[in-house]
C-alpha cells in the first residue's frame, strides 16, 4: 500500500467519523453507518491497496479495513457529549486489539509484528485513562497523535 493511499485512508476515516454519534441519533443509524463504513473501507482497501500482486495476496492488508474502522471510531469519540473518556479508552482498546491479534496471526504466517505501533497505541490508551477533562486542545492533540501513529508507524 503506497504511503499516499495510506494517508488517503486516514482522511477517509476522519471524514466518516464526522457522521457518527450525532446528537439525537438512534442506535440504528449509528449501527447502520458503522457497518456501511466498514464496507466502504473494505472496498477502498480492495481497490486502493496493492492487494493482489506477484501471485500472492499482500498479507498485511487483510486487516486494513478493520484498522481503518478502529481509527474512525477513535476519531469519532472526540465529539461525544457523554462518557467521552470512557469510550475514548475503549475505542483505543479496540484499535490495540485489532493491531495486536492481527499482528500475532500474521506473525504465524511469516510477517513481523509491528511492535512499535502496538506499544504506541497501548501507551496512548493507557495515558488517556488519566485524562480528567478533555478540552478542545486535548482533543486536537489526540487526533494528531492517532493520525501520526497511523501514517508513520
Amino acid at each position: 500500500m503506497t504511503p499516499l493511499a495510506n494517508a488517503l485512508a486516514c482522511l477517509i476515516a476522519l471524514g466518516c467519523a464526522l457522521f457518527l454519534w450525532r446528537k439525537g441519533s438512534s442506535p440504528y443509524r449509528n449501527g447502520a453507518l458503522l457497518a456501511g463504513f466498514l464496507l466502504l473501507f473494505g472496498v477502498f482497501t480492495y481497490f486502493g491497496g496493492e492487494m493482489f500482486d506477484a501471485r500472492s495476496i499482500n498479507l498485511s492488508l487483510e486487516m486494513y479495513p478493520f484498522r481503518m474502522m478502529a481509527l474512525c471510531l477513535c476519531l469519532s469519540t472526540t465529539s461525544l457529549a457523554l462518557y467521552r473518556r470512557r469510550y475514548l479508552v475503549l475505542a483505543q482498546a479496540l484499535w490495540f486489539w485489532v493491531e495486536l491479534f492481527g499482528g500475532i496471526a500474521l506473525f504465524y504466517r511469516g510477517l513481523d509484528v509491528a511492535w512499535t505501533r502496538i506499544l504506541a497505541i497501548f501507551w496512548m490508551g493507557f495515558c488517556s485513562t488519566f485524562l480528567s477533562k478533555i478540552s478542545k486542545e486535548m482533543e486536537f492533540c489526540l487526533m494528531v497523535f492517532w493520525l501520526a501513529v497511523w501514517v508513520f508507524f
Binding site: 495476496i57 487483510e62 479495513p65 499482528g103 500475532i104 504465524y108
Partner: peptide
C-alpha cells in the same frame, strides 16, 4: 470474554489453510 473468542479465532487465523486466511478473524 473477548480474549477467549479472539484466541479461538486465532486457531484458524494462524494457519496456512486457504479458507482460514484472515488477520481480521478476531473481530
Amino acid at each position: 470474554v473477548l480474549w477467549v473468542h479472539t484466541i479461538v479465532s486465532l486457531d484458524f487465523a494462524t494457519t496456512f489453510v486457504p479458507e482460514w486466511r484472515g488477520a481480521f478473524f478476531p473481530v
